[in-house]
């Protein structure tokens, strides 16, 4: 038995990495989504537009650029899923949730910054996504993704 384990050591390492990746990755994802949903509720009242707002004279006290970003890493299981998907085609669910998490987290951080500055509204929000890390320049693999959200926070004059 010991011989068998030694002989297929790399296979065993591979499988345990996949299992480790699945367990820790899905736990991290669940936890992250819980926190995202909770913070989204808290910040729901702060309006964010992708349009440029128009403001009547005397209303605006100050406007500042606010940004928020997050780099979310892939796990071993997700990578395996993506490689398999490369064979069969179809929706790469593993990456869908990765990108979704990164973007929502970035928007939340931007909103949090706007709120801390006392902004009443964030206008003209833009989102950027980029592949980051060791595997970013390899064709078939994605290491991690960065999402950036930025916009103009507008602070009103006290009435």
């Amino acid at each position: 038995m010991a011989d068998l384990i030694l002989q297929s050591l790399d296979l065993i390492i591979f499988l345990s990495l996949v299992i480790l990746g699945y367990i820790s990755g899905s736990m991290a994802e669940k936890k992250h989504y819980r926190s995202i949903i909770q913070r989204e509720k808290e910040l729901l009242k702060l309006p964010v537009l992708t349009a440029e707002g128009s403001f009547r004279a005397g209303l605006v006290k100050e406007s500042v650029l606010v940004t928020g970003s997050a780099v979310i890493s892939i796990d071993y299981f997700k990578r395996l899923m993506a490689v398999l998907r490369n064979l069969f085609g179809g929706r790469v669910k593993a990456y869908e949730s990765l990108l979704d998490r990164a973007r929502r987290e970035a928007i939340l951080r931007m909103k949090a910054e706007a709120k801390s500055r006392g902004a009443a509204i964030v206008v003209n929000m833009r989102l950027e996504t980029a592949a980051i890390g060791k595997n970013a320049d390899r064709k078939r693999q994605l290491g991690s993704v960065e999402a950036v959200a930025y916009g103009t926070a507008v602070i009103y004059n006290p009435r």
């Binding site: 480790l20 990746g21 990755g25 994802e29 970003s69 290491g143 991690s144 960065e146 950036v148």
Partner: peptide, 19 residues
């Protein structure tokens, strides 16, 4: 980051660096 690439989650170091 290499370790995190196995288990998933946010790469706080990268986020800070990029910011």
């Amino acid at each position: 980051a290499g370790l995190k690439n196995l288990i998933g989650g946010e790469l706080k170091g990268y986020t800070e660096l990029l910011q």
